[in-house]
Simulated assay, not measured.
Amino acid sequence: MTVSRTQSTFAPPVMEARRWLEGVAFTDDLPLINVSQAAPVDPPPAQLRAEIARVATDVPEAHLYGPVLGLPELRAEVAAQWSAAYSGDVAPEEVAITSGCNQAFCATLSSIAAEGDEIILPTPWYFNHKMWLDMQGIRTVALSTGDDLLPDPDKAAALITARTRAIVLVTPNNPGGVEYPAALVRAFFELARAHGLKLIIDETYRDFDARTGAPHDLFTDLNWGDTLVQLYSFSKAYRLTGHRVGAMVADQGFLAEAQKFLDTVTICPNQLGQYAALWGMQNLSQWLAGERAEILDRRAAIADNMYKLADKGWRLLGAGAYFAYVEHPFAMRSDALAKALVRDHHVLCLPGTMFMPEDDPAAALGIRIAFANVNRAEIGVLFDRLASADYPRRA
Rank of each mutant, 00 (worst) to 15 (best):
A142L: 06
A321S: 15
Y307P: 07
V68R: 03
G318A: 08
D134A: 14
A187S: 15
D384S: 11
A387D: 04
A338H: 00
L278K: 01
A277F: 02
N375A: 13
A210Y: 07
P12N: 14
A289G: 15
D263Y: 12
S4N: 10
A162M: 07
T220V: 05
L169V: 06
L143E: 02
A50E: 15
E203C: 11
T161P: 09
L143R: 05
D251Y: 10
A372E: 06
R206P: 00
G320A: 05
V95N: 01
E61K: 12
D251E: 12
A389N: 03
L32I: 06
I201R: 05
H129W: 11
V326T: 01
Q230Y: 09
L30M: 13
G366N: 00
S4P: 04
P175N: 09
A194D: 14
G70E: 03
A301D: 07
P124V: 05
N223L: 14
L382A: 06
A389D: 03
A182T: 13
A25P: 02
D390T: 06
Y65K: 13
D202T: 01
H129M: 14
A377L: 11
R193Y: 10
A142D: 05
V265W: 11
L240Q: 01
L296V: 06
Q286R: 14
I201K: 02
E378F: 05
A303Y: 14
L30S: 13
S111H: 01
G318Y: 03
H195S: 09
P40A: 11
V141R: 11
V381M: 13
I201E: 02
G253I: 08
V24R: 09
V168W: 09
N375V: 12
Q37N: 14
A310K: 13
Q103K: 13
L197P: 02
K130R: 15
T27Y: 11
D226C: 10
W287L: 10
F254R: 10
A364D: 08
N283G: 04
T145R: 07
N223R: 15
E358W: 01
A293R: 12
T212Q: 10
L150M: 13
K308W: 04
E94A: 12
N34L: 05
R165D: 04
R292T: 06
L218W: 01
A370L: 05
T227L: 08
E16A: 12
D154V: 10
